[in-house]
């Protein structure tokens, strides 16, 4: 099951040239681009692990793409996303975030229904991948 999180996630995977174009757009807007990765695809897992520091004061997308290549080499079996952080006053938050790398096989989410008092049902989702210990989920 294809995970859909962040911008462009309902589109086919972006090519490297398309990623570079998006990154260049972020940089032209003055946003700092950062790389993050995770192996827990749960939709409420918002805090991914950082790959190096966010890249401030970078002018050209090539710098980010080079860094992404290194990230793919090391954690290419997990989800990797790029985020554009707008530091300007009043925003101070992420303006654009999109997945650039996914595991080859995405098992998807399991939905658990829990019977409550009366006929109420409570739902909870759990990623199948999260059954295995962190770091070995997509190996």
């Amino acid at each position: 099951m294809r995970m859909t999180q962040g911008t462009f996630s309902f589109l086919p995977d972006l090519s490297d040239a398309q990623i570079a174009a998006q990154v260049q757009y972020c940089l032209d807007q003055g946003w700092a681009v950062s790389i993050e990765f995770t192996d827990d695809p749960h939709p409420r897992n918002t805090y991914w692990e950082m790959w190096e520091n966010p890249m401030f004061d970078v002018a050209d997308a090539k710098a980010v793409i080079d860094e992404l290549a290194k990230a793919r080499e090391a954690v290419g079996d997990r989800y990797i996303r790029l985020s554009g952080f707008d530091a300007s006053h009043g925003w101070e938050s992420i303006r654009l975030s999109f997945i650039v790398n996914r595991p080859a096989d995405e098992p998807g989410l399991h939905i658990t229904r829990e019977n409550g008092p009366g006929r109420t049902i409570r739902y909870t989702t759990r990623a199948y991948a999260a059954d295995r210990p962190a770091g070995r989920r997509y190996a």
């Binding site: 050209d60 090539k62 710098a63 860094e67």
Partner: peptide
């Protein structure tokens, strides 16, 4: 490397 990243493209 950080300085080099800033200088890429320039």
């Amino acid at each position: 490397k950080e300085v080099l990243k800033k200088a890429i493209g320039g």
